[in-house]
């Protein structure tokens, strides 16, 4: 287990800056999630840490030692790729054993560790199969198995769940969380899915166009988004963002209010409009109301709320939960 520190790290591809100068400190045993829209530089950042790309400038420290120039294998990190990158010509057993074989460990150790990893990951019955004979979830497990047998100082995951179907994704997410709890290893996890980030992370790093927007624990990001971008990215359904007169009333360029912080009424309130859509999820109902001059505002209501398309509703924001942003998109102090 190790701490990882990035100091002023930047990366350009042929003159195009993909990661702007970035500082980050990851503590031992922490699970940090890099989240951001596709193309924002998450994978690149992860690959810089892995050593699969060279940094353009800056320094990478692993456990306080400079690892900027170390080849990938010497950094003691394990990576789980989005495509799993299993070796197609090797059995599951050989795939998991490969890093140990490369480290020239003796046969018994290899056998023992592979068996142990297979047990943890429920792969005992599949050890002699080839990757193509496995389901998506099983392949994912093999990739994780290959990562854990090395007992790395840190795990790197690059969108490991994006090739799985929705139900399996939730399962694997829980398994990864459980695995992290068991092993307690430093982990960096990349995803574009904010739900994954919220549920897994000790701390989230929100990236946008190669820049860090905000770093913090999930709930802090949720409660106090530092920028308009984070406000819009974290939370589902999205925060309602309103400009114009509604915002200047609060001395801001933009205000944000989450759907759960709006109260509904059929008779009175701050804003009113016609219901354009009511999504009944069972536990909750999300009501979309077309407010003249403001656009569509989403609000959360009880699951058994009986509202119909075209009905008029009044909305009132909980002013203590209002987010205010300046013209540059930075959050204003409450």
């Amino acid at each position: 287990m190790a701490s990882i520190a990035l100091k002023n790290v930047s990366k350009s591809f042929g003159g195009r800056e993909v990661i702007a100068s970035l500082d980050l400190q990851i503590e031992r045993g922490e699970l940090v999630v890099f989240v951001g829209p596709s193309g924002c530089g998450k994978s690149t950042l992860l690959r810089l840490i892995a050593g699969l790309e060279d940094v353009s400038s800056g320094q990478l420290l692993i456990d306080g030692r400079d690892a900027t120039q170390l080849p990938p294998a010497w950094r003691g990190l394990s990576m789980v790729f989005q495509s799993y990158a299993l070796y197609p010509h090797m059995s599951v057993r050989d795939n998991i054993a490969f890093p140990l074989k490369m480290a020239r460990r003796d046969k018994e150790t290899i056998e023992r560790k592979v068996t142990e990893a297979a047990r943890v990951l429920n792969l005992q019955d599949y050890l002699d199969r080839k990757p193509r004979e496995l389901s998506g979830g099983q392949r994912q497990r093999v990739a994780i198995g290959r990562a854990i047998v090395r007992e790395p100082v840190a795990f790197l995951f690059d969108e490991p769940l994006s090739n799985l179907d929705a139900a399996l994704r939730v399962n694997m997410r829980m398994e990864i969380a459980e695995l992290h709890r068991q092993l307690g290893a430093t982990t960096i996890y990349v995803t574009h899915d904010q739900t994954e980030a919220m549920t897994l992370a000790d701390r989230i790093v929100v990236l946008n166009a190669g820049r860090v927007e905000q770093i913090g624990p999930p709930l802090e990001l949720y409660r106090r988004p530092a920028t308009l971008f984070v406000a819009g990215f974290i939370g589902s359904p999205r925060m309602n963002l309103l400009g114009g007169a509604a915002a200047s009333r609060y001395g801001a360029a933009t205000i944000g209010i989450r759907p759960e912080h709006l109260s509904l009424s059929t008779s009175e309130g701050r804003w009113h409009g016609k219901v354009s859509l009511a999504e009944h999820l069972g536990s909750d109902t999300f009501v979309h109301v077309d407010v003249a001059g403001l656009g569509t505002i989403a609000a959360r209501a009880a699951g058994d709320l009986d509202v119909r398309h075209g009905e008029t509703l009044w909305l009132t924001p909980d002013e203590s939960c209002l987010h205010r942003f300046d013209a540059q998109g930075r959050a204003l102090a409450a």
């Binding site: 080849p71 990576m79 990158a85 490369m102 090395r150």
Partner: peptide
């Protein structure tokens, strides 16, 4: 990816 995985796994 596979070549990179091998490098991460410590293959010379």
């Amino acid at each position: 990816d596979i070549l990179e995985a091998a490098r991460m796994d410590g293959a010379t």
